[in-house]
Simulated assay, not measured.
Amino acid sequence: MATRTTTKSGFSAAERDAMKARAQELKASSDRAEGEAAVREKIAAMPEADRVIAERIHEIVAEVAPTLVPRTYYGMPAYAKDGKVLCFFKPASKFKTRYSNFGFNDVAQLDDGTMWPSEFALTALTADDEKRIAELVRRAVG
């Protein structure tokens, strides 16, 4: 018999942990300093490959969109506009995938016809990637 990875509710331990983290995030204040500290703590705890990318994304977002408020989103670094998460970094290590993602929620102003990407896979960051992320964040903020 295979080891059971889900509970009676159908959620895995990782999914339950993410829900608990999200509940705590919703209770947290929207204070910029608290959000900055929480994001930096999450980034510092990442394995090196994720941490290097997350740190640079954090710098880019702070530089091109200083009005966005850092916060965590399901335990991941994220950046909010008017209290709503606009963009986020999903580390590969969190979901045991081969690449990280940088994504945007529906409040982002990235509409391009009837179909456009909302997440981008990242295995590393080149100078061109950094420029593209900066431009996407600028556009997303509106």
Rank of each mutant, 00 (worst) to 15 (best):
E59P: 01
E59L: 06
E59R: 11
E59H: 05
E59M: 06
I60F: 01
V61R: 06
V61N: 06
V61H: 02
V61D: 03
A62E: 13
A62H: 07
A62C: 03
E63N: 13
E63Q: 14
E63S: 15
E63C: 08
V64M: 03
V64P: 00
V64W: 02
V64K: 08
A65K: 07
P66Q: 03
P66F: 00
P66N: 04
T67W: 00
T67M: 14
T67H: 10
T67L: 14
L68M: 05
L68R: 10
V69A: 08
V69D: 03
V69Q: 08
V69F: 02
V69K: 10
V69M: 08
P70F: 01
P70V: 02
R71F: 01
R71L: 00
R71P: 00
R71C: 02
T72W: 00
T72H: 02
T72A: 07
T72G: 07
T72D: 10
Y73M: 07
Y73K: 11
Y74V: 08
Y74M: 12
G75K: 07
G75M: 06
G75P: 03
M76C: 13
M76S: 12
M76Y: 00
P77C: 05
P77R: 04
P77L: 01
P77T: 04
A78G: 13
A78R: 06
A78P: 01
A78Q: 04
Y79W: 15
Y79T: 12
Y79Q: 11
A80V: 10
A80F: 04
A80P: 03
K81W: 04
K81Q: 15
K81C: 10
D82I: 00
D82W: 00
D82F: 00
D82C: 00
D82L: 00
D82H: 11
G83N: 11
G83K: 09
K84R: 14
K84G: 05
K84V: 12
K84F: 01
K84A: 13
V85Y: 04
V85M: 08
V85K: 09
V85L: 04
L86Y: 10
L86S: 13
L86N: 12
L86M: 15
L86P: 09
C87N: 12
C87L: 02
C87V: 04
C87Q: 07
F88N: 12
F88I: 07
F88C: 09
F89C: 06
F89M: 09
F89H: 09
F89S: 11
F89I: 08
F89Y: 15
F89L: 05
K90C: 09
K90R: 12
K90P: 01
K90I: 02
K90W: 09
K90D: 12
K90H: 14
P91I: 02
A92H: 06
A92M: 08
S93V: 08
S93D: 11
S93T: 11
K94R: 14
K94E: 14
F95S: 14
K96L: 03
T97Q: 15
T97E: 13
T97Y: 00
T97A: 15
T97I: 02
T97S: 14
R98A: 15
